[in-house]
Design a protein around this nucleic acid. Structure first.
Length: 342
DNA sequence: TGGAGTCTCCAAGTTACGTCA
DNA sequence: GCTGACGTAACTTGGAGACTC
């Protein structure tokens, strides 16, 4: 569902720090995946440039937090230091030592899973349990875990102690960092995902899910913005239509008061009786032509009354009509297209 | 070279948990 | 303390591209 509206500046025009890009399937992803060494990643044999069905979706969101991407090691350290203490996402089995050993685990995750380096994806010395290695971390073709990919997170939850699906909230620092990353890349390649997960002390699957949800939220917000815009457009058009209807009524009243104007050519006023649209057809309308013909064919009043205006006087009548303060030329207004067949 | 199978990713929709008024 | 609304993490499903055989 794409509204296809462009409400702001284009992606090319907008600053990267303020405008988010979504639906950048082909181009952006190609750029990301054109990174050297990308295919050396174990799951690098992936997609490239799948055409996204969506045009760019833009939304101006949070102001820049000033965190660079990739963040400098100092910032990373700070962030890690600030998050490690209260990381709710750590598996219960993960001790402090496990946290310290996490980097190793991440590396295993990144590089060795495809080769089956860790004998058991679950042991990992107190690191992230099953799903960490089960989620796409298994080698692309050699992982063999048919369906293990999908079941990974749930397996992790089950490892957490039986309760299915524990919802774990990210810390503010983690969310802010993810936001910053999202501003840079609305989509992640595996390398970026792993780096983020490592820096934020999250599972890659969590980073992936966060980005998916973030894209969905962005799209939803953009849809709301588009909806508001269309609503305003609709109101404007409704008001314009109301004004035109009123003007039309005034013109009709003018015609009634001054039947003289009934002889106006059909090009000036030709309204579809069904839809009440004003058409700008040069063909004489039958309804207007008949009285005009009758008036012109009728004999002149014997008493020297005011005769119907001869055809050569019509232009003056025309100009008199449109010089009336009650109306202004329809041609100066945006006119709806007369229906082709009505 | 074309097709089947597999893997991975993503969007869309849904579920369920945590927070807050 | 209970409850409903809301935000959002996590999950499911289906589609599509890339790769291998």
């Amino acid at each position: 569902m794409e509204l296809g509206l462009s409400l702001g500046e284009t992606m090319a025009d907008a600053g990267r720090d303020l405008v988010l890009g979504l639906g950048m399937g082909a181009g952006a992803r190609r750029d990301e995946e054109a990174e050297p060494g990308r295919r050396e990643l174990e799951f690098g044999a992936g997609r490239c440039g799948r055409p996204s069905p969506e045009p760019a979706v833009r939304l101006t969101l949070l102001p820049a937090l000033g965190l660079p991407w990739p963040p400098p090691s100092g910032a990373t350290r700070h962030l890690e230091a600030s998050t490690r203490g209260f990381d709710v996402n750590r598996a219960p089995s993960m001790s402090a030592a496990g946290a310290a050993a996490e980097d190793d685990d991440e590396q295993d995750d990144a590089g060795a899973a495809g080769a089956g380096a860790s004998s058991s994806p679950n042991n990992s010395a107190g690191s992230f349990p099953t799903d960490f290695s089960a989620h796409g971390q298994a080698g692309p073709r050699g992982g063999g875990g048919s369906g293990a990919d999908r079941a990974g997170s749930r397996a992790s939850d089950e490892d957490d102690g039986g309760s299915a699906r524990k919802k774990l909230r990210l810390s503010k620092e983690q969310s802010a960092f993810l936001e910053e990353s999202f501003k840079e890349h609305a989509t992640l390649n595996p390398k970026q995902k792993l780096a983020l997960a490592k820096q934020l002390n999250l599972r890659p699957r969590q980073v992936e899910v966060w980005f998916q949800n973030r894209r969905a939220r962005t799209k939803l917000k953009q849809t709301e913005v588009d909806c508001e815009y269309l609503k305003r457009c609709c109101e404007t058009l409704t008001e314009e239509n109301r004004r035109l209807q009123k003007e039309l009524a005034e013109l009709r009243a003018l015609k009634t008061v001054h039947p003289f104007y009934m002889h106006l050519p059909a090009t000036t006023l030709s309204m579809c009786p069904s839809c009440e649209r004003v058409a700008s057809s040069s063909a004489p309308a039958p309804a207007a032509a008949a009285p005009a013909q009758a008036a012109s064919s009728s004999p002149a009043p014997a008493g020297g009354g005011i005769a119907a205006a001869p055809p050569e006087q019509r232009p003056s009548s025309f100009s008199a009509l449109f010089s009336s303060p009650l109306s202004r030329p329809l041609a100066a207004q945006p006119q709806p297209q007369a229906p082709a067949s009505s």
